[in-house]
Design a binder for these strands. Structure first.
Lengths: 296, 296
DNA sequence: TCTGACAGGACAAGCGAATTGTCGTGCACG
DNA sequence: CGTGCACGACAATTCGCTTGTCCTGTCAGA
């Protein structure tokens, strides 16, 4: 296999016109250049330079190899600039996984800010309710995931960044007797029929159930919904009450009223998860910053 | 500057999927591969592989560099095949310089034979009467020259190959009194008017003049021509006699007769001149062989 | 035309650095 | 708990560069 470095030396000799000039350009002695060319000639199996008077002239093979050296050198420079772009965050891909609520409320402003600072970065955003996005990050299929609850054991090599605490609110049918209170206790809802609105396997569901248990009851779910908008519809129809996180109440149904709740106030903590090894990427750091700013 | 060799190592790792497999493919130990990657990462300023479980996975930068490594590797292979083609004589350029007579009689069959054996070789043929083609070869502007007379000192680094001896013939007007003889002595022409047909500065002219001097006279040139065809026209018109080399009598004028001449018989020796350093080229060797065959 | 000085490249020897191989260690998976 | 894999440290080798020297070709002046 031909040595690219030596080919560049040959190119320097051919373009400079002499071994000595090439050596000066390359910052070494003419002897070193001469030896490199000699080795390259041995590799190529042909003479590449021929002495003519004092000075050298490339042979046909030398000219051929010089042209290819120029091509390869150009590609190499291209690779270097591409790498520099990637390192500086000017280009790259970011694969983001999040759940639907965050996808609507948190990610768009963050992506807008990211695009302003790193216009060359492509973003691949996927909403993957209700699966757990954490393995996607841990196994390198995604660069950042927005998750709900800190696991007891976040996988090795994955770091979590707290973005915001999203408190739950009570959603009542307009005219409900409890709507008279400005702030409800969770235990007020113990005897009410409930509208379920979380995936039973997800962490959000667990937060609600745990809070109710702390308040001394277990919610009586009479109807299940899979998203907050239809859940509000069920509530407005008088089927029951429900808890919806504040971030999920962006567009509110006209037939419901929303009240804060306490004792306890269920809170879902939202974290960003990134691989530790991927953290130094400027684009990823920019995205994290933008997410923190959007959460505030 | 990135090291292409290490980039190929990276490519091997990425395509093989593991350091060990890449090492096996490359015929070295995993340690060597690992260290090469480490150095490349230092050069690139970024991590290129990240450990995941047992095994490694390329980072975004690693994938980027792998793609560029593939491109560069392809170009390198291309350069190698091009070089091999050139070495084997399958491709290349041959610049040939010759004088008009050889261009018409000697070179075409030789080029036909060359094309049969080396179809990819491009030929650049130039007739450069009356300049001396030898410097063209000595200084690398041409690969082969067909010249007339061996110089006393052929330039260093140039080798001459004898192709053929081309004897001069006497050309007489039809019905000339000397046309009765089957073979003339050169001295028979001492008192005749002569038609000149060589460039006065060229070697051919010198051969004729020297031969006449050896026969004891100096030709009385009454009219000068610059090529053999018009010279024959002058002879046919009865303006005088002349000497034309046999190779220059390919198409003969109807109004002349041709006779051999002796005592002495002027002979121009035709040589092929090539640079010593250019001699190992297969295409050039093939051309020399073809020229020798055409001369026989 | 000849000769001395200079420029330019090639070769030999020696040193320093890089590369490679052999070990051992840590980690993840079965 | 064993096995396979990747990584780190150290010794031997190889590679590349520099220094010094010689040879060749060119130019200028006599």
């Amino acid at each position: 296999m031909l040595d690219v470095r030596r080919m560049q030396v040959l190119r320097a000799v051919v373009t400079s016109g002499s071994v000595t000039a090439a050596a000066a350009n390359l910052g070494c002695t003419p002897s070193a250049v001469s030896q490199q060319i000699a080795v390259l000639e041995k590799q190529a199996g042909t003479a590449l330079l021929e002495r003519v008077g004092r000075g050298v002239r490339p042979t046909a093979a030398g000219r051929l190899l010089t042209e290819h050296a120029a091509i390869i050198g150009r590609h190499l420079a291209e690779a270097e600039t591409a790498l520099a772009d990637l390192r500086a965050g000017r280009t790259g891909h970011l694969a983001i996984r999040c759940f639907a609520t965050a996808g609507a409320a948190l990610v768009p402003p963050a992506l807008a800010a990211l695009r302003a600072e790193h216009p060359g970065v492509r973003v691949d955003l996927k909403l993957i309710d209700p699966e757990d996005p954490l393995p996607e990050v841990a196994e390198g299929r995604a660069d950042l995931a927005i998750i709900i609850h800190p696991r007891p054991e976040p996988p090795r090599g994955v770091v979590l960044t707290h973005l915001l605490d999203d408190p739950y609110r009570v959603v009542l049918p307009r005219g409900h007797r409890l709507a008279a209170k400005r702030c409800l206790d969770l235990a007020d809802l113990a005897e009410e029929p409930w509208v379920g609105n979380e995936f039973p396997s997800g962490p959000c569901h667990r937060i609600v159930v745990d809070a109710c248990a702390a308040a001394g009851f277990s919610p009586d779910v009479v109807v299940e919904s899979e998203d907050y908008a239809t859940a509000q519809g069920f509530v407005a129809a008088g089927l029951g009450v429900c808890l919806i996180p504040r971030m999920g109440l962006g567009n509110r149904h006209a037939g419901v009223v929303v009240r804060p709740v306490r004792r306890p106030e269920p809170i879902r903590a939202i974290f960003a998860a990134v691989r530790e090894s991927a953290e130094p990427q400027p684009a990823l750091r920019g995205l994290l910053d933008a997410l923190r700013a959007a959460a505030a």
